[in-house]
Design a protein around this nucleic acid. Structure first.
Lengths: 215, 182
DNA sequence: ATCTTACTTTGGAAAGC
DNA sequence: GCTTTAAAAAGTAAGAT
């Protein structure tokens, strides 16, 4: 009986210790990404479930925390890219993605693919674009969705292209380089996506007119 | 369906001196610090009927053959491998026992696919466009995995028999039609 | 701006860390 | 779990021209 008692005690102690380390790691990453409290709570909840299901065995605690955080951000529709989380944590992008798919599968958490729309406000703020330009970018994305120009492409690339188009169409122009910088994609990707957008949505003429003018 | 790659394990009853093979054959690579197996690359030689393939040779006499485009070519590649190994002065009796471990095939459903809808409708799928543009579709019987692309092109992997690929496609198509996404 | 090379995903075996 | 091999799909990336 003593043995069983002691075993319970050791397990709970080990689990608590693991949880304390995990939560401090979570706080560290959260503050560098300045994430709100509700996301930290969702992340902690997912992490606890992962520990309970024994999903941390065989992989690092950091990668599970990072993956849970990635999932939590998506769940709240304020996604961070794998690159952003990889940079804030000490975990490689590839590892976070694998761990995310693993725990998501095991915990039966099904999240819809990230929508480019969820990146608009954050990217636009970084670019200091007005709400008007943001709304236009969102309108473009909704049309893009209808024309099946979103599925299968990277969400950040599509979001970046929509912002590039809406800003070009406005008097708050931003260069491909500036947009690419905040979105974390290359200029080539923005070019590929925006060409597809303006052609399929029939705003190519409007675009060339707008880019000919100045702000 | 077109077979793109075949992976097979094989074994012969003989100890392999990998250092000796590496020192004798110029098409062999051996970095024991990096990987325990010796890599032997066969380049396509039409007149000699030698197919392109890469064979991993272990000191135990076990081997792994990858890169074949046809099931039949696995044996051809391994026979050539043993021939080259014997040329190094290593005595190998008989032929290798071969087991097909994986068949990779590609095809085209000839119809654009709405991956979002497929992912939303079917549970045995995974779709993470930020990480990979293809949708992962797992089939239980036969146990194979498909990668589906919006273009309608597909990849099948995990099959151990050619017929598993065919049956897998049948199941895949049936499921897609049932979910009215094809 | 376009080309080339390369990496992401799927699956499996081998021997050893 | 990782390491090494091969190959396809499509998107993205990086360095060269």
């Amino acid at each position: 009986f003593y043995r069983l008692k002691r075993w319970h005690k050791q397990v709970s102690t080990a689990t608590e210790r693991n949880l304390r380390f995990a939560l401090s790691e979570l706080d560290r990453i959260s503050s560098t990404l300045s994430l709100p409290k509700n996301i930290r709570e969702t992340t902690a909840l997912i992490y606890r479930k992962a520990v309970t299901k024994g999903l941390v065995r065989g992989r690092s605690m950091e990668s599970v925390v990072a993956a849970a955080l990635y999932a939590a951000c998506r769940k709240h529709n304020v996604p961070r890219t794998l690159d952003e989380i990889a940079e804030a944590s000490n975990v490689k992008k590839r590892e976070i993605g694998r761990t995310y798919r693993f725990i998501t599968r095991e915990l039966k958490i099904r999240l819809l693919p990230t929508s480019p729309i969820d990146y608009i406000s954050r990217f636009s703020s970084s670019l200091k674009l007005s709400p008007l330009v943001q709304e236009e970018a969102i309108k473009i994305l909704k049309q893009a969705q209808e024309h099946d120009l979103v599925s299968g492409r990277g969400p950040t690339g599509v979001a970046a292209a929509a912002i590039y188009v809406s800003s070009t169409l406005s008097n708050e122009k931003r260069t491909q380089r500036e947009v690419a910088e905040v979105a974390g994609v290359t200029e080539v990707t923005i070019r590929n996506r925006y060409k597809e957008l303006i052609e399929e949505l029939g705003i190519a003429d409007k675009m060339s007119e707008a880019s000919a003018k100045d702000d | 369906m077109k077979i793109e790659n075949v992976v097979a394990s094989a074994a012969v009853d003989a100890e392999m001196d990998l250092d000796k093979i590496a020192a004798t054959l110029d098409n062999a690579e051996y970095e024991p610090e990096q990987f325990p197996g010796l890599v032997l690359r066969l380049k396509k030689d039409v007149p000699k009927g030698i197919p392109k393939a890469a064979i991993l040779v272990f000191s135990s006499g076990k081997m792994v053959c990858t890169g074949s485009k046809e099931i039949r070519l696995v044996k051809v590649a391994l026979t050539e491998t043993l021939k080259q190994i014997r040329k190094c002065g290593i005595k190998v009796k008989g032929e290798a026992t071969i087991k097909i471990q994986n068949i990779v095939a590609s095809s085209d459903l000839k119809s654009e696919l709405n991956l979002d809808k497929i992912a939303f409708t079917l549970e045995n799928t995974e779709f993470e466009p930020e990480q990979f543009p293809g949708l992962v579709f797992r089939v239980a019987k036969p146990k194979v995995v498909f990668l589906l692309f919006r273009s309608g092109k597909i990849v099948c992997t995990g099959a151990k028999k050619v017929i598993d690929v065919r049956r897998g496609v049948e199941v895949l198509v049936k499921e897609l039609k049932k979910a009215k996404v094809l």
